[in-house]
Amino acid sequence: MNQAKLGKTDMLNLFKKMLLVRAFEEKAGELFQQNLIPGFIHLSIGQEASSVGTCSVIRPNDYVASTHRGHGHMIAKGADPKRMFAEILGKSTGYCKGKGGSMHIADFSLGFLGANGVVGGGFPIAVGAGLSIKLRRTDQIAIVFFGDGAANRGTFHEALNMAAIWKLPVIFVCENNQYASTTSISYSLAGGSIAGRACAYGIPGYTANGNDVLEVREIVGRAVLRARSGEGPSIVENKTYRYRGHFEGDPQKYRSPQEIDGFKKEQDPIAVFEIRLKTAKVLTDSAAKKMRKDVAQIIEDAVHYAREAPLPQPEDAMEDLFVNP
């Protein structure tokens, strides 16, 4: 989708994708409560404008390196919720045959180079994808999503420097949800701005209202244009907020329920966009209702598929250690 040509259908697709991400995450939270998920999960509820907005301005053959909070990125890149739920439930028909789970879920056929269990682990991988693009002389780009906490990892700086000196087509998309695990950025982030760190590397650092899907599109779109035209990397800092804890089950002693409610009431990315679409007469109440029903059905079908899917066999643990062992 091109920003200039964003038509009614495109707008509605963005909205529907955001609904899908949220419904997926809410359902994942429910399944966790029901003890159906073997490991721990990190949900991105509240951050849908960033994942959906960013992935809406890139092409199917572009690369995305994601994070531990990556379900939204993967859905936005076009992954199948059935196989995602199957993976998260540890089933053999999941994306990684039950070997990865939420933190290592990947779909290489979509250029989705994986969630990552190590904060900041994806930066160098995206730089490598960018390096391959440059060496192969294609016009692809690579996106690396990261949280505010990852901006304090050494990989961030090594990767930024490398991408900048080689002018690689890599976009560093920060989802600044204000908490690194349970630690506020007001405590942990020197300088106060992640986008601001770009100036040290001589590259653009953009800040976007990460709860406004159209603004995310516009800002990331600028970085994409720059990357595709060979001018090099950028940082985009989407300022957003997560409604759930760092992980499901996080007691969240570091913030008040009032703070969370304030964001939900005033800045919810889905509510904000819905009002805008309705005001512009792009979306009606009944169309919104139908869309929510459709999304709920997709999620219900996906969960049904995943719950019915077979568990892996114990001997499967011995496979996939090496190629052609």
């Binding site: 690369y63 390196a65 160098p124 991988i125 490598g128 391959s132 050494g154 420097n161």
Partner: peptide
């Protein structure tokens, strides 16, 4: 930047 050397090599390997 040893982390980025290995990580970037990994990224390049992952995509062919």
């Amino acid at each position: 930047s040893e982390v980025a050397i290995v990580g970037a090599a990994l990224g390049a390997a992952l995509v062919g």
